[in-house]
């Protein structure tokens, strides 16, 4: 579980996060949504320790990040898996080497054991036969699956995803969404996804946090988002006719 208490973050004179508090529970897919510039990415990067909030605390299962020393922070980071928007695979390494990288860095496992684990997670993300290919030789959807495999290879407690569906076709996007949800449930991971893809919200949003102008405007489940009368949420989520109709159908039922 990750608990955020009243975090504030500024860049120069501009305050991006203005006191955000929420809880992301383990075994659930937690979504952060909001318009561009609402502070989603800054919130995610603050969770990852890339940005340091000026005010407030972030605690990972009771461990307050700002109270940890640098070694403890690095230790905590080994419990984190991250899926970057552009996959962030290491160009010079093959698919196998990318996935095995965290194991090679942080465990004393021998080559055979690492390879077995790599094979297992690649099979889990339905990516067999691409072991020796370079990231430049596979499609965007496959790169995302490699990135997921790399993120989960050392059994992380926390999984962060930044726009996991950006640049993917609808089929592949749904596949990635379902994969993230299945893995979250299977390994009881605290998953936090930064997205503005409404399909993801409807598919996998077990907890949704809506940010507006650096503040938490609303939070709830995907069922609650259909019934909410919060104007900002309704304007954002139901800006397309398709989702308006989906909502109307849901409410009629």
């Amino acid at each position: 579980m990750i608990e955020i208490k009243n975090i504030e973050k500024s860049f120069g004179e501009t305050k991006i996060l203005k006191g955000v508090s929420t809880i992301f529970e383990a075994g659930k897919t937690n979504l952060i949504i909001g318009q561009s510039g609402s502070g989603k990415t800054v919130l995610l990067k603050s969770l990852l320790g890339i940005h340091t909030p000026e005010v407030g605390t972030i605690s990972f299962d009771g461990r307050i990040y700002s109270d940890l020393n640098s070694d403890e922070k690095r230790e905590l980071r080994t419990e984190i898996g991250m899926l970057f928007q552009g996959s962030a695979l290491f160009d010079s390494m093959t698919v196998s080497e990318n996935v095995g990288f965290p194991l090679k860095m942080f465990t004393n496992d021998n080559k055979k054991k690492i390879q077995e684990r790599v094979d297992f997670v690649l099979e889990r993300v339905a990516l067999v036969g691409a072991h020796n290919k370079l990231p430049s030789e596979i499609s965007g959807g496959m790169q995302k699956r490699v990135a997921i495999a790399r993120a989960i290879v050392n059994n992380p407690k926390y999984l962060f995803c930044d726009e996991p569906n950006s640049g993917l076709d609808p089929n592949t996007a749904t596949l990635i969404d379902n994969l993230i949800r299945e893995i979250t449930e299977e390994y009881n991971i605290t998953t936090v996804i930064n997205t503005h893809d409404m399909n993801s919200v409807m598919e996998i949003g077990e907890k949704i946090v809506f940010l507006k102008n650096g503040l938490k405007e609303w939070e709830g489940t995907k069922e609650e988002i259909f019934r909410t009368d919060n104007e900002a949420v309704v304007d954002f989520v139901y800006s397309s006719n398709l989702f308006k109709k989906v909502r109307e159908a849901y409410l009629k039922e």
Partner: peptide, 16 residues
């Protein structure tokens, strides 16, 4: 290039 494509962030997030 590693900075631009977030590969350095990936290393840092992993604890490297």
């Amino acid at each position: 290039s590693m900075r631009v494509t977030e590969q350095i962030d990936a290393l840092e997030v992993m604890g490297v």
